[in-house]
Design a binder for these strands. Structure first.
Lengths: 294, 294
DNA sequence: CATCTTTAATGCGATTTTTGCATTAATAAG
DNA sequence: CTTATTAATGCAAAAATCGCATTAAAGATG
């Protein structure tokens, strides 16, 4: 039972004429005759009732005409879907990202992806303090955007761009870009930051910054969410340190003062992932990262 | 794209190992390798990402694994259905019948059919005064049961049995089986019969009967439906003439008196109808007709 | 670091299957 | 009775499929 044989059968079941059908499907009449015979032999019953003069479908043949038609169409539809997936415009991709890029890089990337691959379904997750490496290796996500590089032979980690870390103060705060010298200036202020004991890269960076400047910050409020912190600073409840990207939130009640420290954004994916969507997204991200100057 | 190739692919997509899969499907490793290659060539994209050491599905391959599995199962299901139809236990058959057999022959036949072919769907229609021949030739019905023979080169008409025509009187009527001589006895009674001008065989027969006996019946009520007539007679509203089969209605308030006239029951179907269900039903009906002595 | 093992791909000849031409057989039409 | 139509079939050529043996590449082993 070949797909080709089924197609011959369907054509013949429409025309009910061996010679004309054979010509239509560009084979000889004898070939068509034998293909149908072979199909009938394999099925174990007749598809056509035929004498030297007339050809007509049997009841089983009539049934198969209906159902095989839909099957063949279905197979064709499946093939076309698979083709789209191969090209990389269809499917589902799961991306994990740090909250700090949700105002800048991530919307830009999403913009590109939804334009270039409109049929692509993107699942976004914002995991806190969870190992991106295991998420990738367990196939929970396909791509990870992270602040720290993942060093693993089975994962490729590529830096997309670097951005400054900024001191964030309320808009009417006494520290300005002009009078700012170093962080010791604000060592007695209230800080609103993510818990320093977190294992995330950014918490580690913060610990390092405070260490270098020789003081432990007073923390009145703690939050893992940068945009929460941003709003708290805007309401004059303290100051904070956040990546430059948060400027894209365009909050009018805060002021950003660039520090010398930098944070990177890495894109990570499974080495040799056969999914071409991943490769395409990586490419788009690299291009975007190069032109993206925060 | 062969069904066999798809099956090989599905097996390989489960095992992800050429040698083991080849052994499982009883072909050589080289053959499997080449079949998959040929499938990939035809599709135009890779199904497996493979090096000398590992085999894994591409995204498109994963998609096809899911969908082809259901397609192959579907094809198998379709084949089995078709097989059943060929054997003659599955399908739909449309049968037209005269109302007079709805108490006797028809229930017996239905009983046999539903026992022997439980998956068979039977459509019953009781057409009045309509040409069974055209219903058959227009494929509105597949089998017709009729009181008159259909004489046509494209239709086979076979007599199943003969039964007497009976005078039907209320249970306390003065005419009994013992004192009955001929119909002239009741020429002044009220008759409840189907309209004599109808073109059905039974109406023609009635006309003949009244003609032979030399009187025109007084008809107060007319009805095409035998069982309606039967109930009207039971309520003492008149007498009637019906086929013997109506005795099977087991109405306790009527008495049947056999006349000498007979009516036949014919089964009619399209000559050379390739539907094996028709042949089976004809066979069952012939056997039932022989043993059915009303 | 050299050797062994595993495993998918490939060259090649043998086998099997498929194909089309020409013909046959049966039927309907003129 | 003859002619035309049409599905099946014998046959030889062509194409495909198959499996053996081998290759090539990548761990695994010690």
């Amino acid at each position: 039972m070949t797909i080709q044989q089924i197609k011959y059968f369907l054509e013949l079941s429409n025309g009910l004429h061996f010679w004309k059908t054979a010509e239509k499907v560009s084979i000889s009449q004898s070939t068509l005759s034998r293909q149908i015979q072979s199909l009938e032999d394999e099925l174990g019953f007749q598809l056509f009732e035929r004498d030297k003069r007339n050809v007509k479908l049997t009841a089983a043949g009539k049934f198969l005409q209906d159902h095989w038609t839909t099957s063949i169409n279905e197979l064709d539809r499946i093939y076309k879907q698979a083709q789209k997936i191969d090209i990389g415009t269809l499917g589902t991709i799961s991306i994990a990202y740090p909250g700090s890029i949700s105002f800048g890089f991530l919307p830009s990337l999403m913009n590109i992806l939804t334009t270039e691959m409109p049929d692509l379904k993107i699942e976004l997750t914002e995991p806190i303090d969870i190992n991106h490496e295991s998420l990738l290796l367990n196939y929970h996500i396909d791509i990870s955007l992270s602040r720290d590089e993942i060093l693993s032979p089975t994962i490729v980690s590529k830096r997309l761009y670097s951005e400054s870390v900024c001191l964030v103060v309320p808009i009417n705060h006494w520290v300005t870009e002009e009078n700012f010298t170093d962080l010791t200036m604000v060592q007695n202020e209230n800080f609103i930051i993510s818990p320093l004991q977190n294992k995330t890269y950014f918490s580690t960076l913060l610990r390092g910054i405070f260490n270098t400047n020789g003081f432990n910050p007073k923390t009145t409020i703690e939050s893992d969410f940068g945009n929460v912190i941003l709003n708290l600073v805007a309401k004059d409840l303290g100051i904070s340190i956040l990546p430059y990207s948060f400027q894209f939130a365009k909050n009018p009640n805060v002021r950003f003062i660039e520090l010398t420290e930098k944070v990177d954004l890495y894109m990570n994916w499974r080495r040799n992932d056969p999914n071409k969507i991943v490769k395409r997204i990586v490419n788009y991200s690299e291009v975007l990262g190069e032109t993206y100057i925060p």
